[in-house]
Computed example of a mutant assay.
Amino acid sequence: MTNPNLFHIHHEETDTGTTLYLIGQLDLSMAVHFRSVVEPLAMNADKTLTLNLRDLRYIDSTGLGILVAILKVREEVGQTLIVEDVTPKVQRLLDLTGISKFLRPVPDQTAEQKGGAV
């Protein structure tokens, strides 16, 4: 059985985007691994980049710093960083640090289908 606290990334790619599922605890010990996976993807202006945080149990200041760096890269290439399935614990941390206002949530497909605003 896999340790739920061990950090790893599940990667899904489509023609139009990439989704990274962050699983476990993202801390200083895993920062280099996370950065090495996400940085090249962030530089690709042709694809959306989505982080699914449903199974992210913990993120420290190093992980938050990488998120900020990725936000800057996405801005430079004219793209946003989409986040989805953020747990209340991680959302609170993103809100307290002010990072959440720079993250784009997944568009509400139901509202789009009805012609409503997102």
Rank of each mutant, 00 (worst) to 15 (best):
M1T: 08
L28N: 09
E75Q: 12
D15V: 05
G17M: 04
E76H: 06
T19D: 04
G17H: 10
H10Q: 11
L64C: 06
G17Y: 14
L20H: 09
L96F: 01
P107K: 05
T48C: 08
V118L: 14
V73G: 05
K89T: 11
A111W: 13
H8K: 01
T18P: 05
L81A: 07
L41K: 11
R57N: 12
T19I: 14
T50C: 08
E76N: 07
V32D: 13
P40N: 09
P88T: 05
H33M: 15
K89Y: 04
Q109G: 05
A42E: 00
K101W: 07
T2Q: 14
V77S: 06
L93G: 14
T19R: 01
N52A: 10
N5A: 12
V106R: 15
N44E: 13
R57A: 12
S100W: 01
Q113N: 13
T97D: 00
I59W: 14
E112S: 09
L28Y: 13
E75T: 03
L96K: 13
I66N: 06
V37K: 05
D46L: 04
T97M: 02
G24H: 01
D60R: 04
L103E: 08
T14I: 02
L64K: 09
P107I: 05
H33K: 14
L41H: 10
D55I: 08
E12H: 07
P107L: 06
L6M: 06
K114Y: 11
D108Q: 04
P107A: 14
H11L: 10
Q91P: 09
A31Y: 05
I66M: 06
R104A: 07
G98R: 02
A31T: 08
Q91D: 03
T62K: 15
G116R: 13
T97H: 08
T50F: 07
T50I: 11
S61H: 01
Y58T: 10
R74Y: 07
V68K: 01
D85W: 10
P107N: 11
G63K: 00
I59C: 13
I70Q: 09
T19F: 00
S61G: 12
D55K: 08
D15N: 10
N3F: 02
I66V: 08
I59D: 04
I70M: 00
N44T: 12
A31R: 12
I66K: 02
G63S: 03
I99G: 04
D60A: 00
E76I: 03
D46Y: 07
Q25R: 12
K114D: 15
Q91N: 12
Q113S: 14
L51V: 02
K47L: 14
K101R: 15
L64T: 09
L6N: 11
I59G: 00
L103V: 04
V77T: 06
V106C: 15
R54G: 14
L56C: 03
T87L: 02
V38P: 10
L51A: 01
L53Y: 07
R54V: 01
F7D: 01
I23E: 11
E12M: 10
E75G: 05
M43R: 12
V37I: 03
M43S: 11
H11M: 06
L22S: 06
T62S: 11
D95N: 09
T80C: 13
M43Y: 11
T16M: 06
V38F: 08
L26V: 06
L81G: 10
T48V: 09
G115D: 01
E39P: 03
D55G: 07
P40L: 02
V38L: 00
T18D: 09
V38G: 03
